[in-house]
Design a protein around this nucleic acid. Structure first.
Length: 276
DNA sequence: CGTGGCTCCTGGCGGC
DNA sequence: TGCCGCCAGGAGCCAC
């Protein structure tokens, strides 16, 4: 797999395509869970009972979750990739990745491994996948939401923009890296309060969000294919901003390492709000 | 409702 | 060269 960032929407979309290209319609012969800690709502023997002799018929994504539907019903194997998760499909066990946490053997003799070095990812089973997302309180997918829905959701929030974009119950799919990128390209400081944006800014933010995510998805989330003037290629304190002569700054925003250009990203203030 | 802090886990890195 | 301690980060949880 090519150089890929932490799994956010574009990365998970590339995993989805990979799953689709490799693992549909091949009957599951066996499942071996190598790290039980990744199983979140089902035990290994139950997972086998649900999946062995079944086929994955389609694979979809919502936010950072990938789900592979089984047969014709509503049930699905649901995967979350945490920080370090990815998929690997192969025919020879010599090619099994180094942190395989769950190995699916298919009837054809090929394998699909869920590799996750840091075990922040998770494997779920959903009898009804839409119901599953409701119980997770998962917001609409960042690429599926319309402008009107986005504006409507913003109406009811007052929160620092970066943690808001990363809040999976607000919209799902955006994490640390892409939230920084979106705010950089939109020219808004990550600490700006969501209610300080005027209508034009709100629309801009939506447009930039779509543009960043769509571009990343088009390029299969391959870091090397991203534009050189994206901030994510310059994530270090003191790096030169690719679009002007300022230096990239590093701050902590709600406990997350955040990079921004102090010259391009304006901290919007509400009327009467004290600066800094 | 919002914010901040802690926890899980592991490898990489800085310091000595 | 080796070892120790710290840090990163998605998301759930808890306290305020």
């Amino acid at each position: 797999m090519k150089s890929i960032l932490m799994p956010e929407l574009p990365e998970v979309e590339s995993f989805r395509k990979y799953f689709e290209a490799t693992s549909l319609q091949d009957p599951v012969a066996w499942i071996e869970v190598k790290s039980p800690a990744i199983l979140r709502n089902i035990a290994e023997h139950d997972l086998r009972r649900r999946l062995v002799r079944k086929r994955f018929t389609s694979v979809s994504r919502r936010g950072k979750y990938l789900y592979a539907s089984i047969g014709k019903g509503k049930s699905a194997l649901v995967l979350h990739f945490g920080m370090t998760g990815f998929l690997s499909h192969f025919r020879d066990l010599d090619r099994e990745p180094g942190h395989d946490r769950m190995l699916i053997t298919f009837g054809s003799g090929s394998y699909l491994a869920f590799d996750d070095q840091r075990k922040f990812g998770g494997v779920f089973f959903a009898d009804d996948v839409q119901e599953f997302f409701r119980t997770k309180n998962l917001g609409p997918d960042a690429l599926a939401i319309t402008l009107d829905e986005f504006l409507n959701l913003l109406e009811h929030r007052r929160r620092q923009l970066k943690p808001l974009l990363m809040d999976q119950s607000f919209i799902s799919g955006i994490g640390n890296i892409y939230s920084d990128e979106i705010l950089y390209q939109a020219g808004i400081h990550p600490l700006t309060s969501s209610d300080a944006m005027d209508p034009g800014r709100r629309k801009d933010l939506y447009t930039v969000m779509r543009s960043v995510l769509e571009t990343a998805v088009e390029r299969d989330a391959e870091f090397d294919r991203y534009p050189e003037d994206w901030l994510l290629k310059h994530r270090s304190a003191g790096a030169k901003c690719p679009l002007d002569d300022c230096r990239v700054e590093r701050i902590s925003v709600s406990g997350r390492t955040s990079y921004f250009c102090p010259c391009r990203q304006e901290r919007l203030l509400k009327k009467g709000e004290p600066a800094g």
